[in-house]
Design a protein around this nucleic acid. Structure first.
Lengths: 339, 339
DNA sequence: GTGAAAGCGCTAACAT
DNA sequence: ATGTTAGCGCTTTCAC
């Protein structure tokens, strides 16, 4: 048929072609040791021409390094779905691209198969929206690896060397100020349990904000999985109180949609009678009727920064613990647009 | 502080402990060659006790196998977002879990960094919702690797050895029958361009169905990125026709939400004046007002079957080309629930 | 049935 | 500045 699947060129092929030893090839390509500039140049050129690239397995065997990073979306699965996962895909793709560029293999590690990592040891792991009880955290840190998170773990902090996150406290204040600016006086908060950092951050900032104004604190800390059903029940409970809130700020896009739905059922107009804001932007937010005000988190930026941080930590260029804030912006849309 | 990061036990450690050669250990653990059953048993037991597992890099160097599978969501990125990506995360996670179980490293490969795969050669690739022009397809197949897809590629078919998919033609008929059953008489179709198999399949089935009934074929083949904006424009164009459809079947959840929104703006009630069905189920579908009838695709099943197929092909146990249909179910909800 | 030994492709001392 | 050589941890022929 076609050309038989030819063997990849090895370092020996390059060495022979260049008339040097494999050491010189290795040194030229990784610029270690001393190599005459012109030699190095020639070697590089020949390597390129031959389409040579080092066999990673041999390289790793020889160096004892794994050059592998485990990627995990914490607790994601059939029954735990809080936010539109475009956020996760974008974050994962950009984390992955960055890892690849830095010479690391990004391996996707589902929550339930962490034990496999004994066979595929990772130098480090990036966990998205961690709780702190992820088995992956133990596996990696016990093996001497480094764990970094997107969103901060509230437990097992010693196991986490770094994190990237949006500035939830500031964003919360920004949202509440925005609501106040639009004339909303009784904002309620719907978020997750405090074992997730976004919830803890948001709750704290919210409580401080309402306390400053002497307003009532109306918080729903959702313990169940944030499904459509739970979202509606929660919103209904809130809106049927004696003195209901006039606006809702929620960490889950599902809950924003749920609130919208319940408002409709109760005859409340959005944004006139009820303002709604979500912490995560998504297609759902942009497509809802009315469109929903939400925060653009810049997941791609979070992903690439997290990996750079992880690699920095692995190289010892950065000392743990480190944290990095990625800017996010409030996208004002119809759900809070009243005069 | 704590225990210094101890070196992982090697095959020599196991051999020494068992008082045998490393050959025997290797044979026992992989059951090759002949080993006295009791010897084998002892070796396995000791390996376990020592927490031994083969160094994958050494193993791969020795065997010349990569045992690596590239995972890619085709065309996913900041500007191409058709469906709620929970679908993708679930599919990816389950594909990944299956790969790991079968001894393969699942490496997430973003669309834009395919060239890196020269350094990290993959035995095969799984591409989700392919077009057929993905660089990854060429990279992998040119390197003698095997490409499998979730959803069928419409181009470059020779490069694809296998696929898994839902039965879109049948599902389309099921949806149209359901709409007819609920009294809708003029179903319209909004889908993507025919270079994606789901669109091609759906269009064909739809056209046959309406032809059989002598009904008018109302198709919007969306060329632009399926964003919220495009969704609304498309829906509006459809609903403002002289003889508008009384129901919409769409491949994108964004479009279902968009149709809902436009219907509201035009004073059309859903499901009374307009029925809406989407091909992909998602949180958005379940949380909308009203809830939207949609198809549950079973992404986890698609993911694990795709990987099993890929590994089967790699092992030569399966002969290409192969295709596998994964059952999906119509979830009837409020958007089509009229008497 | 078991083991010695060669080699997978590369890196890193250590010569020269 | 360049080359020789000894591994890295494993699989696999080939003897015994």
């Amino acid at each position: 048929m076609s050309t038989p699947p030819r063997r990849r060129p090895s370092i020996h092929d390059v060495a022979r072609e260049a008339g040097v030893s494999i050491t010189t090839v290795s040194h030229s390509l990784n610029d270690r040791g001393r190599v005459l500039p012109e030699t190095k140049e020639r070697v590089i050129e020949i390597a390129e021409r031959l389409g040579y690239s080092a066999n990673v397995h041999a390289q790793r065997l020889a160096t004892g390094l794994n050059k592998t990073i485990a990627l995990q979306v914490s607790g994601y699965g059939p029954d735990i779905v809080g936010v539109d996962s475009a956020y996760y895909i974008d974050l994962l793709n950009s984390a992955s691209a960055t890892a690849l560029e830095l010479g690391y293999m990004p391996i996707l590690t589902p929550p339930d198969v962490t034990h496999q990592l004994t066979r595929f040891p990772a130098d480090g792991a990036l966990i998205l929206d961690p709780i702190g009880n992820e088995p992956l955290m133990d596996t990696v840190s016990e093996a001497g690896g480094i764990v970094v998170t997107a969103g901060r773990a509230m437990k097992s902090l010693k196991k986490v060397a770094g994190w990237v996150d949006n500035d939830l406290p500031t964003l919360t204040v920004e949202v509440l100020d925005h609501l106040e600016d639009r004339g909303y006086r009784r904002p309620a908060l719907i978020t997750g349990t405090r074992d997730r950092s976004y919830a803890a951050d948001t709750i704290e900032a919210y409580e401080r904000w309402v306390a400053e104004r002497g307003s009532e604190s109306i918080i729903e800390e959702v313990k169940a999985n944030p499904t459509a059903d739970v979202a509606m029940k929660t919103a209904r409970r809130l809106l049927e109180r004696n003195s209901p809130p006039d606006s809702i700020y929620t960490s889950f896009d599902v809950f924003a949609l749920g609130a919208l739905r319940v408002a409709g059922a109760l005859g409340l107009k959005v944004p006139d009678d009820l303002g709604i804001v979500a912490t995560v932007d998504s297609q759902g937010m942009r497509s809802a009727t009315p469109t929903l005000t939400a925060i653009e988190n810049h997941p791609r930026e979070l992903g690439s920064r997290a990996i750079k941080m992880l690699v920095g930590l692995l190289n010892g260029e950065v000392k743990p613990p480190v944290g990095e804030i990625v800017p996010a912006e409030l996208q004002v849309r119809e759900s809070t647009s009243r005069p």
